[in-house]
Amino acid sequence: MALRRPQPLNDLGRRLVRPVLLAVSTVLLIGALLVATVSPVIIDALYRGERDFSRASNIGQAYGAASALLAALALTVVSASLVVQYSQFRYERLQTVYQHTEDLVKLAIENPQYCQCWGSRMSPEHVDERLFYYCSLVIKSWTRAWERGGLTEREARNFLKSFFDSEVPRLFWQRHGDWHLYRKARTRAGRFMVLVNEEYLIAIKSGPPSRSHEPAPHIGRPGGRGTQRTE
């Protein structure tokens, strides 16, 4: 199952949104300041010697309204820029947390004795906990690919259909999924979890998985599978 590479425009667009908004807001603010600064001089030059001061006053009032609109537009752009910056910061912070969590999970997979430090057993007694940790990494990997545009819904469903055609992933999601709860997809990641739950329930209704749990061989234990004997 090869994941499609994220669309380059997605990452490029994410990097360009903040600089573009900052540039536009800066230009608008500078323009508003320049207009506010030089407008009295311009009006005075155009209507110098004009005895009808009411006309100049009307023009000044009209300019004041336009200036207020321009300032409001600039403020809106600046606010949008701040929102984008906060969203980007939050996204990067979450990615850092996810990466640290993945590193800890991988450490537990490589060193099974660390699994007990995560609390109660992740899996039933007859299933190696590392299999459940690995299932968790698979789901997280697909979730990230989905969030970044590297998976279409059709591809995601095909992957999940194959995933849940094995006994271990079914046991994993039965214990640690929220398939029994109603989930409203408020985010793109939430939408992917909806897909996971749907494909899990479809797999359960379809019957037993085609691949049953395969216990790992106990290397080095007398009488265990894979034990090498020397004459």
Rank of each mutant, 00 (worst) to 15 (best):
M1Q: 06
A2C: 00
L3T: 01
R4T: 01
R4M: 00
R5V: 00
L9I: 04
L9Y: 04
L9P: 00
L9C: 01
G13D: 12
R15M: 05
R15S: 08
L22V: 11
A23F: 15
A23S: 14
S25C: 13
S25W: 15
L29R: 15
I30M: 08
L33V: 14
L34M: 10
T37C: 10
S39G: 12
S39D: 13
I42K: 10
I43R: 15
D44I: 09
R48E: 11
F53A: 10
S57R: 14
N58I: 05
I59M: 04
G60E: 02
Y63Q: 14
G64D: 14
A66Q: 15
L70Q: 12
A80M: 12
S81M: 15
L82V: 15
L82D: 12
V83E: 13
F89L: 11
V97M: 10
Q99P: 04
T101N: 06
L107V: 10
A108H: 11
A108N: 10
N111H: 12
P112I: 05
P112H: 05
Q113S: 11
Q113P: 00
C115G: 08
R121M: 09
D128L: 06
D128V: 05
R130Q: 07
Y133K: 13
C135Y: 03
S136C: 03
V138W: 04
V138L: 02
I139K: 01
T143Q: 15
T143A: 15
T143F: 05
R144M: 13
R144D: 13
W146C: 07
E147T: 10
R148M: 09
L151W: 02
T152Y: 09
E153D: 11
A156C: 04
K161S: 04
F163A: 03
D165V: 02
P169Y: 07
P169L: 08
L171H: 08
F172E: 01
L181N: 07
L181H: 05
Y182D: 09
R183N: 05
K184E: 13
K184N: 10
R186S: 13
A189W: 06
F192V: 10
M193G: 08
M193Q: 13
V194A: 07
L195K: 08
L195P: 09
E199N: 00
L201H: 03
L201R: 09
A203H: 03
A203C: 01
K205M: 06
G207D: 02
G207F: 02
G207C: 02
P209Q: 03
R211H: 09
S212V: 02
H213W: 05
E214K: 14
H218T: 07
R221D: 02
G224H: 10
G224S: 11
T230P: 02
